[in-house]
Design a protein around this nucleic acid. Structure first.
Lengths: 188, 188
DNA sequence: AGTATAGGTGAACAATCGTTCACCTGTCAA
DNA sequence: TTGACAGGTGAACGATTGTTCACCTATACT
C-alpha cells in the first residue's frame, strides 16, 4: 500500500529532524502537484500515522521514533504478520519522566552487580535529595560518590551495596543524596 | 543568561513535537517583535544550541532529547557548574542503529541472568539471520524460542545460556536465528 | 557629558506555506 | 457502454513564513 510512502517520509523526518512540507513530500514521492500530497496526507491522518497542526503543518505520530514491542521472549516469537497488532513505544518517553532533571552516568566498579548493574552500563539518574527505602541512589558519603541501595528503617538510614564483597555504609556525618537511579541501559 | 529562554523553547518542542516559528517564540517569551526573536536565534545558533534550515526554519540540536552524560559514578560527581562542559547524547540514536529492523522484547525467565539480563528487562533486538560467536541472539531451536549466547567454534554452532543451572543447546535439526540483541534497558 | 552597544519595537519584503478549485485520466462494476 | 470514483495535474488563494530595515531605548564605559 502506502507503506512505501510512509518510510520515505520517516526517513526525511529522521534525517532532517522535522516533518517535510507538502512541496517536499511531492518531490520526495515524485508527485508534481501538492494536491496529490494533500489527499495522501488526509489518509495518513485518518489512519493515525501523522498528525496535523491547527495551521496544517505535519506532526509525527506513529513514525516518530517508536519501536515495536513484540512480547515476551519466552512466550514465543511473533510472526511478521502479528507484529502490526502489537504495542509500540517511544524509548525516550518510556525511560525518562523528567527530562530537565535527568542525566546519564557511566557505571564503574561492581558494587551493584547483584542488582545486575554492571561496569560500563549507563544509568539514568534523576536529581533528587530524598529517597525511599529500596531506591538505588547516587550519593556522597564521607566525601566520596557511590551508587548504592538506599535503606531507611524507621529513620535510621544507610547505604547498601548489591555485592556481598562490600559492606554497607553507615554514614557518620551526613549523607548527601544527589539522584535516584530510574533506569539502566546497556549496549552491545 | 538565556537558559530560561531555552527551556521555554524546549518545552514547546516536546509538547508540539516540532520547533516553534519566530512568531510563536515571540509569544512564548513575551516579545512583541519577531526581530527580537531573530537576534536571539542567531545567538543560539552560534552557541550550537539550535540549527537552521537553509530556508530558515529552526531545528533542534542540543535540546532535542539529549541527556547530559556526566561521567563515571565512581570518579566523583560533577558539580552543576561542570555539567555544561560534559558530553550529551541522544538515547534513541545511541541505542538503535537500524530503526527499521529493530524491536523490543520483554525478557522472561532467568537463562541470561549471568549476563545481567533479568526478567522484566527489555532487550533491543535487531533482525538478522546471521550471528557471530559471542552474540546474544533470539533464536528458534527445535520449535521453541529463546535468548542465548550464540557459539560458533569452527563451524560447530550451539546456544549457551548465561546461567549454570541450564545446559547448552546443541540444535539437532536446524537453528533459526531471528535477531541479535543489541542492548538492554531496565526501568525502576 | 558624550557615546558605543546590546536588546527591543514596528513595519515592510518576497517567498513559501497549506488549502481549494476545476479538470484530466485510468480502472472497475453494473 | 455507461457511470462512479480513486488518484493525479496545474493554477490560484490568503495567510504565514523568515528576513531586513530604520528607529527607539536603557545601561555601561570612557
Amino acid at each position: 500500500m502506502d507503506t512505501h510512502y510512509i518510510s520515505k517520509i520517516t526517513s526525511f523526518y529522521h534525517a532532517h529532524k522535522r516533518m517535510p512540507t507538502y512541496s517536499e513530500i511531492a518531490a520526495l514521492l515524485g508527485f508534481r502537484s501538492k494536491n496529490a500530497v494533500y489527499k495522501l496526507v488526509q489518509k495518513l491522518v485518518d489512519e493515525g500515522i501523522v498528525d496535523k497542526d491547527k495551521s496544517g503543518r505535519l506532526l509525527p505520530r506513529r513514525l516518530e521514533s517508536e519501536l515495536p514491542l513484540l512480547g515476551l521472549v519466552k512466550a514465543g516469537f511473533p510472526s511478521p504478520a502479528e507484529e502490526e497488532l502489537r504495542d509500540s513505544m517511544n524509548l525516550e518517553d518510556f525511560l525518562i519522566e523528567k527530562k530537565e532533571s535527568s542525566y546519564l552516568l557511566e557505571v564503574d566498579g561492581d558494587s551493584m552487580i547483584d542488582a545486575h548493574i554492571a561496569k560500563g552500563d549507563l544509568v539514568i539518574a534523576e536529581r533528587s535529595e530524598k529517597a525511599s527505602d529500596g531506591d538505588i541512589v547516587i550519593a556522597e558519603v564521607d566525601g566520596e560518590w557511590t551508587m548504592k541501595y538506599f535503606r531507611d528503617r524507621g529513620g535510621k538510614v544507610w547505604l547498601e551495596p548489591a555485592n556481598k564483597q562490600y559492606k554497607p555504609i553507615y554514614p557518620t556525618e551526613g549523607l548527601r543524596i544527589a539522584a535516584i537511579v530510574k533506569g539502566v541501559i546497556r549496549k552491545y
